[in-house]
Design a protein around this nucleic acid. Structure first.
Length: 277
DNA sequence: ACGAGAACCTGTTTGC
DNA sequence: TGCAAACAGGTTCTCG
């Protein structure tokens, strides 16, 4: 489910509710998530204050005092639900794995049916965090430009679909937004890195930023599971141009093509072979 | 050293 | 209708 825009949507929603609050209690109903929840997890976060909330790629970060960072990942099907007025008599629903109470009455529920997500804490410097060590650039950062991208891909014989799913190249794109950004650039997902020019990279960078920013503006994409923190769906699924649209007419002006689906690197990929070259 | 493919897990949709 | 297979937004591990 959640790619960069979905996590950013959650981050923006959660920030205003927990910023400056102290975690008063936490309960773990299942510890066997993608990685087992550390046995000291509760101890490590309780009585700590949220100094800020952040996001890196698809990871949600709670910067707590005493240099502790709480990391949450939502995997494919994860959700975070927040109620502002607390909850009395809480009974966990199916796939609720973790809850957290804050001193301002906020109650947070981490729910993930497939358990591909996880939570963990790290101490000290983010740069040393093992999952970020080899992670690629943030696509919405200023440093992500055509030259940067070109340097990463110009010698690669992999296809662009595959390259953009690789978090070591650009961090935060997933299966939906790769298809959308390639369509927006009019570049074929089967093109190799080697055959991608600097001028193409310019287009790709513009499209990636444009698609991600627009998706954030619309509160992310809800195909099935994704919810904003109050339970509302996102709205970007109404703005998708190719993802899930196999057999439909390409909606680019003057293009008479039809959207095709191909499995590339094991993932469904949607594109228009007529206008994406 | 790298890249493709499998694996992780549950729920829903598709096809026979 | 019923059941089995395929498929789903991500990441990590194994194997060639």
């Amino acid at each position: 489910m959640p790619e960069l825009p979905e996590i950013e949507t959650v981050k923006l929603g959660i920030e205003s509710t927990v910023l400056g609050s102290v975690i008063t209690s936490t309960k773990i109903f299942r510890r066997d998530l993608r990685f087992p929840v550390d046995k000291n997890f509760e101890k490590l976060i309780i009585n700590k204050r949220v100094l800020s909330v952040g996001r890196r790629s698809k990871y949600l970060l709670f910067f707590l005092n005493k240099k502790t960072i709480l990391v949450m990942h939502l995997g494919m099907s994860g959700k975070i639900n927040v109620s502002i007025n607390g909850v009395s008599e809480y009974e966990p629903s199916k796939h609720d794995h973790i809850t957290m109470s804050f001193d301002n009455g906020v109650f947070l529920i981490y729910n993930d049916p497939r358990r591909f997500g996880f939570v963990e804490t790290i101490k000290g410097d983010l740069a040393d965090y093992k999952r970020f060590k080899y992670m690629g650039i943030e696509p919405l950062s200023k440093k992500f430009d055509a030259l940067h991208l070109w340097s990463k891909i110009k010698n690669s014989s992999r296809v662009l679909k595959n390259i953009f799913l690789d978090q070591k190249v650009v961090a935060g794109l997933g299966n939906i937004y790769v298809s959308e950004a390639l369509w927006d650039s009019q570049i074929n997902p089967k093109r190799t890195g080697k055959k991608t020019s600097l001028a193409d990279c310019k287009k790709l960078v513009v499209s990636i930023k444009k698609v991600l920013e627009k998706a954030i503006k619309y509160g992310g994409t809800t195909l099935k599971d994704f919810r904003q923190i109050g339970g509302e769906v996102g709205y970007f699924q109404n703005k998708l141009q190719v993802y899930g649209k196999e057999g439909e007419a390409c909606c680019r002006r003057k293009c008479k093509g039809t959207i095709e689906k191909a499995v590339i690197s094991g993932r469904s990929t949607f594109y228009c072979a007529t206008c994406q070259k």
